[in-house]
């Protein structure tokens, strides 16, 4: 068993999801007087998911190598994006979006802080002009 293979771990996660689907679907009606119940379809795709993901977990096939170099940048950006969405309710879209833009330009692309600030202010102002002013679309 390839304990460190990405297929192993993703297969395991999907097997857990498949198991959860099967377990939950068993609690719903499978076949009633009017035909199949709400548990019918989920039970079958849950079983299929469980079977296929276990195939992936126990597969002996050699994995394609996954390049994780650079993933740190993606995860950092995702984290910043998640934080900017989480604080939307407190600081509003324009501020959180400007800070996110500043982070991407200054930290991810290592541009000078002045350039990052200019981009951040520019895109935030642009969104304000295009959406609430021109299109009448409310910002979060």
């Amino acid at each position: 068993m390839r304990l460190r293979s990405p297929d192993f771990w993703s297969g395991l996660a999907l097997a857990a999801l498949g198991g959860y689907i099967v377990y939950t679907a068993r609690g719903w009606e499978y076949l009633g007087q009017d035909g199949p119940g709400p548990g019918f379809f989920p039970l079958w795709y849950g079983i299929a998911m469980l079977t296929l993901s276990l195939l992936l977990v126990f597969s002996k096939k050699e994995n394609q190598k996954i390049e994780w170099k650079g993933a740190g940048r993606a995860f950092a950006t995702w984290g910043a994006f998640a934080v900017s969405v989480a604080v939307l309710k407190i600081v509003g879209f324009l501020i959180s979006f400007a800070v996110l833009s500043f982070f991407i330009v200054a930290v991810m692309y290592r541009r000078p802080p002045a350039v990052a600030a200019l981009v951040a202010l520019g895109v935030a102002a642009g969104f304000y002009v295009v959406f609430p002013l021109a299109l009448g679309v409310a910002l979060p």
Binding site: V85, L100, A138, P140
Partner: peptide, 29 residues
């Protein structure tokens, strides 16, 4: 570095414009 913040911004505004739900934005993340 200008394009990517724009895409993230349009995604947030697009979702919010269609549902008005902050929960949907968390799902988007």
């Amino acid at each position: 570095y200008v394009l990517y913040p724009l895409i993230l911004g349009v995604s947030i505004v697009g979702i919010y414009a269609s549902s008005g739900s902050l929960f949907d934005l968390l799902l988007l993340v």
